Lab assay of single mutants.
Amino acid sequence: GATAVSEWTEYKTADGKTLYYNNRTLESTWEKPQELK
């Protein structure tokens, strides 16, 4: 079967924080998503 690919993209901001963006739900979060833990 196909492996579930994470929908989350990780961005590094200018101040060194990490922003997570979900390509499916168009949601963005500063918290690390469950799927990435």
Rank of each mutant, 00 (worst) to 15 (best):
S28V: 15
K32E: 07
A2L: 13
W30N: 08
Y20V: 00
T9H: 07
S6P: 11
E7G: 05
S6K: 08
A4I: 13
L19E: 04
Y20T: 00
K32W: 03
A2F: 13
K17M: 06
P33F: 02
T18K: 04
E27I: 07
W8D: 00
P33T: 02
T9R: 09
K32R: 11
E10I: 15
K32T: 09
Y11V: 13
L36H: 07
T25D: 02
T18Y: 07
R24K: 13
Y21A: 02
A14P: 13
N23D: 04
T25Y: 03
A2T: 13
T25F: 02
E7K: 03
E10S: 09
N23Y: 08
R24F: 12
E35S: 10
D15S: 10
K12F: 08
T29Y: 07
G1M: 13
P33S: 01
E35G: 09
E27A: 05
P33M: 02
K12E: 07
L26S: 11
G16E: 01
A14Q: 10
K37M: 15
E27H: 04
T13V: 04
W8L: 00
E10N: 02
K32H: 04
V5P: 12
K37N: 13
T13L: 11
P33R: 00
W8A: 00
E7F: 07
T9W: 06
T3Q: 12
S6H: 10
L19V: 11
G16I: 00
Y11Q: 06
W30V: 06
S6D: 10
E27D: 04
Y20L: 00
E31K: 05
E10Q: 09
V5D: 11
T18H: 03
V5T: 14
K12H: 10
T25Q: 01
T13S: 08
L26K: 15
N22D: 02
A4W: 12
T3H: 12
E7D: 12
K12C: 12
K32N: 05
L19H: 05
T18N: 03
Q34H: 11
L36R: 04
K12M: 10
K37R: 14
A14Y: 05
E35V: 08
Y21M: 08
A14G: 07
L19N: 03
E31W: 04
S6E: 09
K12S: 06
Y21T: 06
D15V: 03
L26M: 15
K37I: 14
Y20D: 01
R24M: 10
E35A: 13
T25H: 01
A2E: 12
D15L: 05
T18Q: 03
E7P: 06
A14F: 06
Y20I: 00
K17H: 07
T13Y: 11
T29V: 10
T3K: 07
E7A: 07
T3L: 11
K32G: 02
A4F: 12
Y21W: 10
S6T: 10
L26V: 02
K37A: 12
N22V: 01
A14R: 09
Y21Q: 04
A4P: 12
D15Y: 05
N22S: 02
A2S: 14
K32Y: 04
N23E: 08
L26W: 08
G1P: 13
L36Y: 12
T3P: 12
T25L: 03
K12N: 06
T13Q: 10
A4T: 14
A2P: 14
Y20A: 00
R24I: 15
P33G: 02
L19P: 00
L36M: 10
D15K: 04
Y11H: 07
T18E: 02
E27L: 06
T18G: 01
R24T: 09
W30M: 10
E35D: 11
G16D: 03
E10W: 13
L19D: 01
G1A: 14
L26N: 15
L19T: 04
E7H: 07
T18F: 06
G1Q: 14
